[in-house]
Design a protein around this nucleic acid. Structure first.
Lengths: 164, 164
DNA sequence: AGATTTCCTATCGAATTACTAGGGAAGTGT
DNA sequence: ACACTTCCCTAGTAATTCGATAGGAAATCT
């Protein structure tokens, strides 16, 4: 579980508890295999996620078509597709909902004037780049601890781990 | 304005009003030139930013060493350094805090277990990527509407402007 | 002095986030 | 039929954050 500084945050890019929990739950399912069902309680236990909170998130994953559920004694959740066909981006999107915004306004609706005119293409570029990574890396990659080389090389740069 | 996709859905990437306003104010100063002072009210007017709100943001930029202020009749704000030596990342960080966070915690302070172990390097890679762009593009680039080629090519990909 | 403009503190409502509570619906084994 | 399990749904809530506003003190110019 993530223990550490309870500092302020929230800047240009932030991954919410919901998104983080959703990905970790999906990874647990990926590790169990496409044909094995896990109960919400077991996932919550394994990843240290509040169980009732997780239930809501798993509901989102189900409605998003990423996960299949079954109730009753032998019930639980399992992945709807092979883990190598589910990018991390999908999980985050389904759990966290529509959420690309500048000041709560969607980019196409922004009007920048004067010297700020080129700001929009910049935001778009950043977003495209983030999506390139999270759309390329799948649950299978992370669960097997085998990230694609280009992603790994980004993370290997020592400067990437420093503060600001 | 381009009314392209109505739902610019996607990953949890959000630029706060504070960060957006801070960058736009800095761009206005960049356009004015390093030696020209602009009054907060003038910047607020030019960019359509609530003037009292902007005052607080400019205070942050000053404390962050990006801007120099002068009070009194001929006072105002001006850049502390040449516009081509101030990356957008610096402005956002100073105005809004760290650039990327997971659940309010900065990536290096997270700890993951089980199949989620490789999540940390993934977040680090994403963060490094965001930093690469926003650390490369300066106020001068945006104010002159001349983004670096590699950034421009990312934004030019039509798919970058569409939905999931 | 008098006008101007930054600077500081304090407050506010609305929204969002991360969770909690309780109970009903659907499925399973005896 | 019955008990038990597990998902499913709706509400609520405490804490924080966000965007914005107000009033006035301190500095600087003419």
């Amino acid at each position: 579980m993530g223990t550490g500084a309870a500092v302020m945050d929230n800047l240009s890019m932030r991954i919410s508890a919901r998104a983080d929990y959703a990905v970790r739950a999906a990874l647990e399912l990926a590790a169990a295999g496409e044909d094995t069902s896990l109960k919400a309680e077991a996932i919550a236990e394994a990843q240290g996620i509040p169980h009732k909170f997780l239930e809501g998130i798993l509901g989102d994953l189900r409605r998003g078509g990423l996960v299949i559920s079954q109730r009753g004694g032998k019930g639980g959740y399992r992945l709807a597709r092979p883990a190598d066909s589910i990018p991390i981006a999908d999980v985050i999107r389904v759990a966290d909902g529509p959420l690309v915004s500048v000041r709560g306004v969607r980019p196409p609706d922004l009007s920048y004037i004067g010297p700020a005119e080129s700001l929009l293409p910049l935001w778009i570029a950043v977003r495209a780049n983030v999506r390139k990574i999270l759309g390329e890396v799948t649950l299978a990659h992370v669960a097997a601890a085998k990230l694609p080389d280009d992603v790994l090389s980004l993370a290997d740069d020592p400067e990437a781990w420093t503060n600001p």
